[in-house]
Simulated assay, not measured.
Amino acid sequence: MTAPMKAAHEPVHDFLGLAGKSVLVMGVANKKSVAYRIAHTLEQAGAEVIYSVRSEARKESLAKLLANRRIFVCDVEQPEQIDQLAIDMKNQNIQLAGLVHSIAFADYPEGIRPFHETTRRQFLQAIDISAYSLISVCNALKDRLVKDAAVVTIGISTTRMASESYGFMAPIKAALESSLAFLTKSFSRFSEVRFNAVAAGLLKTSASAGIPGYVDSYLYAEKVIPRGKAVSTDEVASTAVFLLSPRSSGITAQSIVVDAGMSINYFDASVVQAVTSADVD
């Protein structure tokens, strides 16, 4: 005899299956960070969030925001710090059901320049911090991840759009996105760990505000998005938390685009009219 279904008005607890599970979130800079909004949503879902930040100074600046949380320091440019993170987590017997990699950096000392003028140092530093760090961290922490853990990184809605306001980061994010399939395959030899990305549209964050020309692109996005409103950081965070949860157990090696439909609407009549009218003037 089957058990009776709950009435529609009765609450369903722990729908995402994250309560009591530990998730490491890397990349919180301030309360506007994508990483912080993911962490906040995870805590609302009942997960224990463990934080990793890039420096002692950053840890101090976040002391009030992340009060009473476990915080590790790990600068992913320093391999020894990644190794130490693994050691510290092992010493504290931490087992992770999830890992959030929300780390990206690009150096624009002279502002945005033509892509072909990107220097070797700029490109290699950006790919080290923004893409290779995912591989390095996952390798170091492989024994800290439970068998069916979920790893989520933050990509961009398209790596094929040659947006001048994003400098040379699109190829870097393309490398990050490509690595998901290879990580999924290699980890499948000993686990069921899943690797996915949230491919976010243009967001209003402190980091993005510092990119030359980004604000204008953000305002343009609001015009092109069908609903007339840009993607919010919380919308990206909610998708990331879903991908971290057992509810997404059948999804791996994927980039889930969260752009509120911008990619279907580049030729919106009102936008086209505004551009062509300006050309005539």
Rank of each mutant, 00 (worst) to 15 (best):
M1I: 08
A3H: 02
G17L: 02
S22N: 13
V28F: 06
A29V: 14
A29D: 05
K31N: 13
K32W: 06
L42S: 08
Q44Y: 04
Q44E: 15
A45R: 09
I50M: 01
I50Y: 04
R58P: 06
S61A: 14
L65M: 05
N68P: 00
I71Q: 04
P79M: 08
E80N: 13
K90A: 15
Q95I: 04
I103R: 06
A104E: 06
P114R: 02
T118K: 03
T119V: 00
R121Y: 09
L124E: 15
L124I: 12
S130Y: 03
Y132I: 09
A140N: 10
L141Q: 01
L141H: 00
A149W: 05
A150E: 09
V152M: 01
M161G: 02
Y166T: 15
A170H: 07
P171S: 07
L176Y: 05
E177G: 06
S178E: 14
L180C: 09
K185T: 14
K185H: 10
F187E: 06
V193Y: 03
V198A: 05
A199T: 07
A199S: 15
A200R: 03
L203Q: 01
K204T: 02
T205D: 09
A207K: 12
S208K: 10
S208I: 12
P212T: 05
Y214Q: 05
L219H: 09
R227C: 14
K229F: 10
T239R: 01
T239G: 08
A240M: 01
I251V: 15
S255P: 00
D259L: 00
D259Y: 02
V271S: 13
S277F: 11
D281N: 09
